[in-house]
């Protein structure tokens, strides 16, 4: 190879327009970063002050267990009466459709103290504390319920937590949840006519 064809060290010399372009880009880049461009410098938000977490109060009972004013207190009709222990079709209380295992009225309602419930050892339980009776069969639910994992809680996750007792959600005579009408389904892409909206829905449909 002819020695004159070897270029000087450092690569080919740049023509003035190219050189000025590079200088220009460099100036722009320096300016960009100097003015706060580029990657974020804050790992957290500058404006956030420290907010200590307050200690949590005990959960509060949202609502007392519901009682039917028409039928309660029971003593209004059954005062001094001892209930008939025989399992039979009732003439009264047709609205009660008993669908709770193999239970019969007097398994929970007290035979003599008509306004009260009773546990299996015959100790009386106030209507407002009916959950104590529920625990006799559904003991496994209790820790979950106390922890707020079984049953609904509302209010504050760090503050006034509202809880409910069993009978607020479950009808004690027929405790299984009743089916509900669902809210309307999302609109599929094919039913949206505006072209942009269709694209939106398609993207969303494809999302799951």
């Amino acid at each position: 190879m002819h020695p004159h064809s070897i270029e000087p060290r450092g690569g080919p010399s740049l023509s003035p327009p190219v050189r000025w372009t590079i200088v220009g880009i460099a100036v722009l880049a320096v300016g960009f970063f100097a003015l706060g461009g580029g990657p974020l410098k804050q790992s957290t938000v500058r404006a956030y002050p420290s907010r200590p977490l307050a200690p949590e109060p005990e959960p509060v009972l949202l609502a007392p267990p519901p009682v039917d004013d028409e039928f309660f207190p029971c003593e209004d009709c059954h005062e001094g009466e001892s209930a008939d222990p025989e399992v039979r079709e009732l003439d009264e209380h047709e609205h009660v459709k008993l669908k709770h295992g193999d239970l019969w009225c007097l398994d929970c309602h007290d035979r003599d103290q008509r306004d009260l419930l009773h546990l299996s050892d015959d100790s009386p339980v106030e209507m407002s504390e009916s959950w104590r009776l529920c625990t006799r069969c559904h003991a496994k639910r209790i820790p979950d319920w106390r922890a707020g994992v079984h049953g609904k809680r509302t209010g504050y996750w760090s503050g006034r937590k509202e809880y409910r007792t069993c009978v607020v959600c479950h009808d004690p005579h027929s405790p299984l949840f009743k089916p509900l009408a669902p809210k309307p389904p999302p609109i599929p892409a094919s039913q949206i006519h505006s072209p942009t909206a269709t694209r939106s829905a398609e993207m969303n449909d494809a999302g799951h």
């Binding site: 707020g148 994992v149 079984h150 049953g151 609904k152 809680r153 209010g155 503050g159 959600c169 509900l180």
Partner: peptide
């Protein structure tokens, strides 16, 4: 400190 809207709306208490 409040619960989310979905937690409060759930009728069966499935959301925690």
């Amino acid at each position: 400190g409040r619960y989310t809207a979905c937690v409060e709306a759930c009728p069966v208490g499935a959301r925690k």
